[in-house]
C-alpha cells in the first residue's frame, strides 16, 4: 500500500463523483417522477456520445459546443420515445415497463451499430482531454474538473427547478400523488412527458462527456448504467437530493480501493456493489 498516492486518490474520487452524479440524476428523475425504471438510460448516454462524435466528424464541433445541440436532440428523442411507447405502459405491471425499456435499449444499440458500426470511435481532436495541472503534487485533469463543475451546476439547477419553479412543483406533486395532482388540475401526462425528456437530456449531456473520455461504441453506456442504477438505489429510489452524496461515497470508495489495494482497479465494481449491499441491508434492518 503506497500512502503517498492517497491525496491523488481522494482528488480523483471527488472529481469522478461529478460524472457519476450526472449520469445518475436523470435516471433518478424518471424513477422519482414517472415511477418507471428506464433500462434504456445507458443507451441515451451512448446516443449522446455518438451525436457528439458525429458533430465533430461532420462539422468539427468541439464537444463543449456539441452540448448545445446534443442536449435538445436527446430531449426530443426522449419525448418521442415517451409519446410512442412509455406512456402506454405507465399503468401496466412493472415487469412490462422494464421489458419495454430494455427493448428500447436494444433497438437503440442496434441502430447505433447500423449507423456507426461496432468499432470504437474517437473524437480525435479534443485539446483539453489530456490536459492536467499539478497542485501540491496532485494532478487535476481538465476533463474531470470540467465535468465535475458542469455536473454540479446541472444537478444544482435541477434541484432549484424542482424546488422553485411551477414545473418543478408540478413534478413533485405528480410524483407524490398522481391522482391527486390530476384532480387539482395538473396535466399529469404532460408533466411525465417533460420529466422523461429532461431525463433524456441529462443523459445526453453525460453522454457527451463520456464521448470525450472514452471511445463511443454501441455498448459504451453499459458500465455507467450499472453505476447509475447503484447510485440511485443508494440514494433511495427516486430521491434526487441524495444523488450527489451517493455518487461521492461510491466514487471515493472506488478510487481509494483502486489506488491503495494491489490490483484494486479490478475490484472497482465489487467495491461499488458491496457498498450498495451493505446500505440496503442496513436500511432493511432499520425499517424492521
Amino acid at each position: 500500500m503506497d500512502l503517498s498516492l492517497l491525496p491523488q486518490a481522494i482528488v480523483s474520487g471527488v472529481l469522478a463523483s461529478g460524472l457519476y452524479a450526472l449520469v445518475s440524476v436523470g435516471l433518478a428523475l424518471a424513477i422519482g417522477v414517472i415511477g418507471i425504471v428506464n433500462f434504456a438510460h445507458g443507451e441515451f448516454f451512448m446516443v449522446g456520445a455518438f451525436l457528439a462524435y458525429q458533430l465533430f466528424v461532420s462539422f468539427g464541433f468541439d464537444p463543449l459546443l456539441s452540448l448545445l445541440f446534443v442536449a435538445p436532440a436527446l430531449a426530443v428523442i426522449g419525448a418521442l420515445i415517451y409519446l410512442s411507447s412509455i406512456r402506454f405502459v405507465l399503468r401496466a405491471p412493472e415487469l412490462n415497463q422494464m421489458l419495454l425499456t430494455f427493448g428500447i435499449g436494444i433497438i437503440l444499440q442496434n441502430l447505433a451499430l447500423l449507423i456507426w458500426g461496432g468499432d470504437p470511435r474517437t473524437i480525435a481532436n479534443v485539446p483539453y482531454r489530456s490536459l492536467g495541472f499539478q497542485v501540491a503534487g496532485v494532478s487535476i485533469g481538465a476533463v474531470p474538473l470540467g465535468s465535475f463543475v458542469i455536473s454540479l451546476l446541472l444537478v444544482a439547477g435541477l434541484y432549484w427547478m424542482l424546488a422553485s419553479t411551477p414545473l418543478g412543483r408540478a413534478m413533485r406533486a405528480v410524483a407524490q400523488n398522481r391522482i391527486g395532482a390530476g384532480l387539482v388540475g395538473l396535466e399529469v401526462d404532460r408533466v411525465y412527458l417533460v420529466a422523461f425528456a429532461l431525463s433524456a437530456l441529462l443523459a445526453g449531456l453525460g453522454g457527451v462527456m463520456i464521448g470525450v473520455i472514452q471511445s463511443p461504441t454501441p455498448t459504451v453506456g453499459l458500465g455507467f448504467t450499472l453505476k447509475a442504477f447503484a447510485i440511485v438505489v443508494l440514494a433511495g429510489l427516486g430521491n434526487i437530493r441524495g444523488i450527489v452524496g451517493a455518487a461521492l461515497t461510491v466514487a471515493l470508495a472506488e478510487s481509494l480501493v483502486a489506488t491503495l489495494v494491489p490490483n484494486g482497479d479490478a475490484l472497482r465494481n465489487m467495491v461499488f456493489f458491496a457498498i450498495i449491499f451493505v446500505v440496503l441491508v442496513w436500511r432493511s434492518r432499520r425499517v424492521a
Partner: peptide, 24 residues
C-alpha cells in the same frame, strides 16, 4: 504487474489509480 477493469467488461474508463501506480 497491475490489473484494471476494462471498459469492455464493465469499467468506466477511469484508469488514473492504475497509471499513478505505474508512475510511482
Amino acid at each position: 504487474v497491475e490489473a484494471f477493469k476494462s471498459t469492455l467488461t464493465g469499467g468506466t474508463g477511469d484508469f488514473r489509480a492504475t497509471i499513478a501506480k505505474a508512475a510511482a
